[in-house]
């Protein structure tokens, strides 16, 4: 994967250079790019459990919400500075993933999807009943007027998550995850402790998601259950990952970039029904015609386009 390796290095360099941009941008663009970095980080995190390990989690938004609430609680009730609060949020999110993952990751396919979905919906309802978290009316955080700060923090989370993915993809742990995705029984026979590897993958995924959630809470200065446990975040993570290429190193970021650009073009500031209809049509297109995402085209150019192979693949997937 020479071309793939160059792509990863190229994207990391472009992202690193984009740290120099904020002073030259107006407020709206800083906002748009910060949101793009956040969504990319969420997709990168989902990719670890959904793409590499093959467990389609619909509950990753739980860790976004948990991270946001942990950070808000630490900053509001305990008066911790942001960095300590964010670290606390990361630990809480990862611990929750490990705790939930132990029983839940034994489930497969549809059952795993439903179990994680019900956790996401259940956590939202549960948090909305807790007095220390302001019940349904949410929590407010101290205001930081320096919006460039959030740009840099989100960018940092994204770069760290890409480098972490690249590192994992080349490690024994990464190979173990792929082996589990391809055939869990065979992986177990090879001596992989599947349960531990899966829980570890989910915990790392949750840690990144929690960090993004904590930063989002401070950025937004106000959080309530429907905002931070919004299932749409989870759906977007999945679609961005699939569009770019699940189980690849920078696929999620590329998918996120394309969807964000389309959203910006259609006017994402005011989410109109037509915007959502177009999003739906894009998903239908991706699922049917790009089951491996855009990655083959990005590394192989148009040579990757093979009408015969596409038709054969379509024939194999229908009845």
């Amino acid at each position: 994967m020479q071309a793939g390796g160059r792509l990863v290095v190229g994207i990391v360099i472009v992202l690193a250079l984009s740290a120099l941009l904020p002073p030259h941008l107006n407020g709206n663009w800083v906002h748009v790019l910060t949101l793009f970095f956040m969504m990319s980080s969420l997709a990168q995190a989902w990719n670890l459990i959904g793409g590499f390990t093959g467990y389609a989690s619909f509950g990753n938004v739980t860790f976004f919400g948990t991270g946001a609430y942990a950070c808000a609680y630490a900053m509001d009730a305990m008066r911790w500075p942001f960095w300590t609060a964010a670290l606390f949020a990361v630990v809480v999110a990862a611990a929750l993933a490990a705790l939930l993952g132990w029983p839940i990751l034994r489930l497969r396919g549809h059952y795993f999807a439903i179990a994680t979905l019900s956790i996401a919906v259940g956590m939202q309802a549960l948090v909305a009943q807790q007095e220390p978290f302001g019940k349904g009316s949410g929590m407010t955080l101290p205001i930081n007027p320096n919006f460039h700060f959030f740009y840099w923090v989100m960018l940092g989370i994204l770069i760290v998550s890409i480098l972490l993915t690249a590192f994992i993809a080349r490690s024994r742990f990464g190979y173990a995850l792929v082996a589990i995705r391809e055939n869990e029984e065979a992986a177990a026979v090879l001596g992989i402790n599947a349960a531990r590897a899966k829980v570890a993958a989910w915990a790392i995924s949750a840690a990144i998601t929690g960090a993004a959630g904590a930063t989002f809470a401070y950025w937004n200065t106000f959080i309530d259950p429907p905002t931070v446990f919004d299932l749409n975040y989870n759906v977007l993570m999945i679609i961005m990952t699939l569009l770019g290429g699940a189980g690849t190193i920078v696929g999620p970021t590329i998918g996120s970039f394309i969807l964000s650009a389309i959203g910006e073009y259609l006017g994402a500031q005011s989410i109109s029904p037509w915007h959502t209809v177009v999003l739906g049509a894009i998903i239908v297109f991706i699922v049917i015609l790009l089951p491996r995402g855009l990655m083959p085209y990005l590394t192989g150019g148009l040579r990757a386009f093979n009408l015969g192979a596409l038709r054969a693949q379509l024939r194999a997937s229908r009845v």
């Binding site: 999945i238 699939l242 029904p273 999003l279 739906g280 998903i283 049917i288 009845v319």
Partner: peptide, 24 residues
């Protein structure tokens, strides 16, 4: 029917996409 034999995530996402299209 185009993805009925593909992994379950495909049909899951496809029906999700249809649902948001129809609702909107």
């Amino acid at each position: 029917n185009q993805v009925i034999r593909a992994p379950m995530l495909a049909t899951f996402l496809l029906t999700f996409a249809l649902s948001i299209m129809i609702a909107n």
